[in-house]
């Protein structure tokens, strides 16, 4: 046995193989990038070049027509993972002073029995986003909108940092724990509802989602209903509107009752 030829690139077989591959590629590329786009009746190409660009995946420039504006204000806040994840003591201190005006509803230490959200230990980014949305009108509330209107951006950062700094109430281990309802632990995949816990804590936490444990049942229920009816629409990608719309009234009740039964309000109401 022996090997024919020395340099494979001078080998006639090599040249044939390269030529064959090149012809194959050119033919396939011609079919994929030119022929098929032109033959497809549902592809509206302005011409040959447009068809090639489209098939090659070049992003089309947006058209000049103005997009249809929604009849409500959309949130302009971009929540990122590192948003407000470090707060300095001065900011927390300023926030504590500013928070006096919040205490009547949210409690002097960030929790109350007024069915308003408990804020102690809430994520700073979640509080900041809601304040911004109240200010911009993306979310509206007869009480919160006037409060938020007069806050500066730094004020909102400070208040958010202060409440995030406050400790969450520890779990009350003497209470019997309610078993998480299906909607919280499993969601309803066939209705496109992920488990509540996969964003709002217990299974996982996703950026921008508030911590729900111990929030008042009435508040959670009211918010889910508002999302479902489209009365609240400051969820950036419509995720809460899509979820709440698909939830049954019973599931809304179960989720609200379950979260309110955990730790914070349980201690507050002395149950």
């Amino acid at each position: 046995m022996s090997v024919r030829g020395n340099s494979i690139f001078r080998d006639r077989w090599a040249i044939r193989c390269i030529a064959l591959t090149a012809v194959l590629f050119v033919a396939i590329a011609f079919i994929g990038l030119v022929l098929l786009p032109l033959l497809q009746p549902n592809v509206k190409a302005a011409g040959l070049w447009d068809a090639i660009c489209s098939a090659a995946g070049i992003a089309r420039k947006p058209t000049n027509t103005t997009p249809v504006a929604p009849d409500f204000k959309i949130s302009s806040v971009v929540v990122t993972p590192e948003m407000l994840d470090t707060a300095d003591a001065q900011s927390i201190g300023r926030g504590a002073t500013l928070a006096h005006q919040c205490a009547i509803c949210h409690g002097p230490a960030g929790f109350s029995r007024a069915d308003s959200p408990n804020l102690s230990g809430q994520y700073a980014s979640a509080i900041y986003k809601q304040l911004k949305d109240f200010q911009s009108g993306a979310r509206s509330n007869a009480i919160m909108t006037p409060f938020a209107a007069k806050l500066t951006d730094q004020d909102m950062i400070d208040v958010a940092s202060y409440y995030a700094y406050l400790p969450r109430l520890p779990e009350d281990r003497t209470r019997q724990v309610i078993v998480a309802p299906q909607i919280v632990s499993n969601g309803a995949p066939l209705r496109n509802i992920p488990p509540c816990g996969s964003c709002h804590g217990s299974i996982d936490h996703k950026v921008g989602s508030p911590w729900l444990q111990g929030q008042p049942a009435a508040y959670i229920k009211a918010q889910l209903q508002a999302f479902a009816r489209g009365q609240r629409n400051n969820d950036i990608s419509q995720q809460m509107r899509n979820i709440a719309r698909q939830m049954t009234p019973q599931e809304i009740d179960e989720a609200a009752r379950y979260y309110s039964s955990l730790s914070q309000s349980a201690q507050l109401t002395g149950r």
Binding site: A29, I31, G32, L36, P37, I52, A55, A56, G57
Partner: peptide, 8 residues
């Protein structure tokens, strides 16, 4: 990804 490259 463009449809042409998917075909290729």
């Amino acid at each position: 990804v463009g449809a042409g490259f998917k075909f290729i």
